[in-house]
Design a protein around this nucleic acid. Structure first.
Lengths: 206, 206, 206, 206
DNA sequence: CATGAATGAGCTTTCATTCAT
DNA sequence: AATGAATGAAAGCTCATTCAT
């Protein structure tokens, strides 16, 4: 077989097709969810034949894995760009929270697709992705920990367990993503602003 | 049709059968996940025929909805029992956090089944359950809000946005449930203890 | 899953269905050959849905293996019955050759189906069946060897290499089965009669 | 269309390509069998694109037919060379048997490819090749018949039905090719030697 | 109350072939 | 002469559901 697969070099046109397919996959995931996002539905959305998807991706798993990769990297760039534009740990923390909430508001389609894959896809051994502890560091997680750590080292922040606080912050952010009763009644700016205040209280030295 | 459905009155024996099926569904969901949890697999686990499931539940959706109901009520009881055994808002908050984390550690099977349904099941209009803003109040959410509110009224707690703090707390709890890198490296007691400290800082009056 | 599979006990009605499916498979194999004998074609021939075949057989391999078993046992019975009705090695040898050729003439459909499976089916490791040295003794092969051996022991036959002669006889028989130019121009009785004369010459003591 | 097909004149470079493709087809047939020997697999083995195969052969049938032709002519040359080097019918008969068995031992890959095509390929009317009575004389069959006939005419051999004996000899040879239990326990020299003895007994005048 | 039997719809994947470049 | 890109058709298989018994 000569099919282009995720880890091989691809031609420009091939790369364009792959992007188009990934984009169609994301839209389909958002619109009808992972379970109904069959190759046929994705192909239909992309305006191509299912066989062409098979030509550009080894199989459905390959397509979903690649799509997940794209989604994760897109979200990471979005947040990291905005965070790293700041200088002090306090400002970085604020930017991190605002960007994380903001991404959800800005690109809801991507967010839903991400969730759909994360909670449906499974490894060949049938281990769900959401149970996997990514061998590779999650760049968003480590960025947050580094911000908190830097704040402590610079004596800008007080004493706290970095990993636990980082988790709490990430959880508070994700809660907004998942909880519709929340995100449909409080706008993202207000929520992130409140969250910033809340966690400033925790990090601030007495 | 004479089939017993979720909202009809059921005989004792029928009720026993339904429980058995729900139990089998939970175990199957935990072991192989929602997508592979076919009627056949659940029937096999229960040691009965698939047709018998269809006899006791209108369809797969009905079974999953009922199972979800059972899971939610089990978790609620677990947490509420332990919370309501306390008197002061501070103690209630501590109990709430510890019980929520503890449930995850105590009944991992139920927790996984809960997640599997929540993130896979969809309404007839294809709306995912996780996007639904439960029409009925989520008793765990409102309990937490009431604790925080009571603390403020009794001047035990300071000023903060109750809904946002409640969300942050719930998010911090769920983060432990979902983040394997977290729950596999920090034991539940330590995490909840740290979380309690963290949020005590937030609620405590200056 | 509760599907009946080849090695489980089956109900009467299930057994009847399996027979019907096998019969349809044999006819389909004869008519359009292994490659085109899809589940759909076999189901069509049997007047049932493809899913019903899947219900009664684990997969296509299971169906083909079971069909092969039936075909081999049918052919064996046919030949062994006629052979074992004879008493002396000479008569047994004649009966063996005549019955083997006769089976081909009597049941051409079965014969073709047998060939189709034998030369197309492959193990899970992709080893073709025709390359397999049956772990279990082939009853037709061993019967022939025993006839020749008995003839030598009773001094009815002279000296010869039993295995080689047995192979030559089986080859001469199969040649008639496979070679259309042969079996379409010489009738089976003549061919077997000539073959008997030929091999009588070889076994007869000088 | 300008595509070069089997019956047209071809350029030298085109002929080289065709040979390369045929060689790849043979290896693929031997390694994974006819059914899995897709154009893609053959192209991969040849290190070219599938489209190039389509360019040099009308379709898959054309490729397989041509490959079969090559295989048959290779086998014929092998056997005929060795047979025609002999002078007397007895010696020719010995050479024929030894060469036929020897080819199988010498070129197992070719032999397997030959079998795979013979038992899988079908005409446009879906008639399997193995059921075809070649319109053209099979040179190996007629050579054997001529040897036997010549032996009778020269009074070197006795009386027997030439066509039947020829078939028996060919069958005895093919049995060694197909029967793995045979060819894996008796070496080709021994088997052909025994076969020669056996059939010498048949042809020798009393 | 319980089951085995049966189906239609849908799934992913593979294939030979075509076509523009 | 050679290829990458693309397709329609068909394959085997699984599933939720229905129905007669």
């Amino acid at each position: 077989m000569t099919h282009k697969k995720t880890d091989e070099k691809k031609s420009f046109i091939s790369e364009a097709r792959r992007s188009q397919i990934v984009e169609a996959a994301i839209m389909t995931l958002d619109e009808i969810g992972y379970i109904h996002a069959s190759m046929a539905q994705i192909a239909k959305k992309a305006g191509i034949s299912t066989a062409l998807i098979s030509y550009h991706f080894r199989d459905k798993k390959d397509l979903m894995d690649y799509t997940l990769l794209m989604l994760l990297s897109d979200m990471s760039s979005y947040v990291l760009e905005r965070t790293q534009a700041m200088v002090t740990p306090r400002d970085k923390l604020r930017a991190y929270i605002e960007a994380s909430i903001g991404y959800h508001a800005d690109k809801p389609t991507y967010n839903v697709a991400l969730i759909e894959i994360l909670f449906h896809a499974r490894t060949a051994d049938n281990v769900p992705y959401y149970k996997l502890d990514d061998d590779e560091e999650n760049p968003l997680e480590s960025e947050l920990q580094q911000i908190l750590l830097a704040g402590q080292e610079k004596k800008e922040f007080g004493a706290f367990n970095v990993r636990v606080l980082a988790s709490a912050i990430r959880g508070a952010i994700d809660e907004y993503v998942f909880n519709r009763k929340l995100n449909s009644t409080i706008d993202p700016q207000s929520y992130s602003s409140e969250l910033v205040n809340l966690f400033y209280r925790v990090v601030t030295r007495d």
